Amino acid sequence: MSIASPARIAASLAELWSPRVVAEVDDAYVKVARVHGTLAWHSHADEDELFYVLKGRLRIEMESRTVELGEGELFVVPKGVRHNPVADEECHLLLIERKSTQHTGEEVTDKTRSLAEQLRPVE
């Protein structure tokens, strides 16, 4: 077991919208990401998704409402809810997702990352 600094790791990532696994807790992965712009409208049929803002601001658009998160705030998108994460400026995130969660659900875009890509060692 090793110590990890999610904020430092997120800041060091070269790619946008490319989450990296930094820890495992039971059947969930703890991931970090550096984001800017829009990801994609998608949903996760069987999994909730926790977004925690390490740095910056994140807007999560959903069909029924939109939430705005600042540093130190979190929000859980319930399973089955279509959502679209948006960062108008660079934002660093910590995500907690079940290991079965696909990055952009059933939607596949140029920003979609496989689990193998998310599990790559952070340099």
Results as ranks from 00 to 15, higher is better:
Gly72Trp: 13
His103Trp: 15
Ala4Leu: 12
Val30Arg: 02
Arg120Pro: 01
Glu49Asn: 05
Leu13Phe: 05
Asn84Gly: 06
Ala23Tyr: 08
Leu119Ser: 07
Val30Thr: 11
Asp46Met: 09
Met1Phe: 12
Ala23Cys: 09
Trp41Gln: 10
Ala10Trp: 03
Ile3Asn: 08
Asp48Leu: 06
Asp27His: 13
Leu16Glu: 06
Thr38Glu: 09
Arg20Phe: 00
Val67Glu: 09
Thr109Met: 09
Arg57Ser: 15
Ile60Asn: 13
Val86Asn: 03
Gly80Tyr: 00
Asp110His: 13
Lys79Glu: 02
Glu117Tyr: 02
Leu58Trp: 02
Ile3Leu: 14
Leu16Thr: 09
Leu58Phe: 08
Ala11Arg: 12
Lys111Gly: 07
Glu89Thr: 11
Val30Trp: 05
Cys91Gln: 01
Asp26Trp: 10
Ile60Gly: 09
Asn84Asp: 11
Leu50Glu: 02
Glu68Ile: 08
Leu39Lys: 07
Asp110Trp: 15
Val22Asn: 02
Val86Cys: 04
Ser5Arg: 09
Ala7Val: 10
Glu15Ile: 02
Thr101Pro: 08
Tyr29Leu: 12
Leu119Gln: 08
Val108Trp: 13
Val86Ala: 03
Leu16Tyr: 11
Val35Cys: 12
Ala4Gly: 01
Val21Leu: 06
Thr66His: 10
Gly80Thr: 04
Ala40Pro: 04
His44Tyr: 07
Asp88Gly: 11
Leu54Ile: 15
Arg113Phe: 06
Val77Met: 03
Thr112Cys: 09
Arg120Gln: 14
Val122Trp: 05
Ala87His: 00
Leu54Trp: 10
Glu97Tyr: 01
Ser12Arg: 09
Arg57Gln: 15
Val30Lys: 01
Lys111Phe: 06
Gly56Tyr: 02
His36Phe: 08
Arg120Ser: 05
Leu50Gly: 01
His36Trp: 06
Val22Ser: 07
Gly37Tyr: 03
Leu13Pro: 00
Lys111Gln: 10
Val32Lys: 01
Glu71Arg: 10
Leu13Gly: 03
Arg82Gly: 04
Ala7Leu: 12
Lys31Ala: 02
Thr101Phe: 06
Leu94Glu: 06
Lys79Gln: 10
Ala11Thr: 03
Glu63Pro: 03
Glu68Tyr: 12
Asp46Tyr: 14
His36Ser: 06
Ala7Ile: 10
Val21Ile: 14
Ala11Cys: 06
Leu93Ile: 04
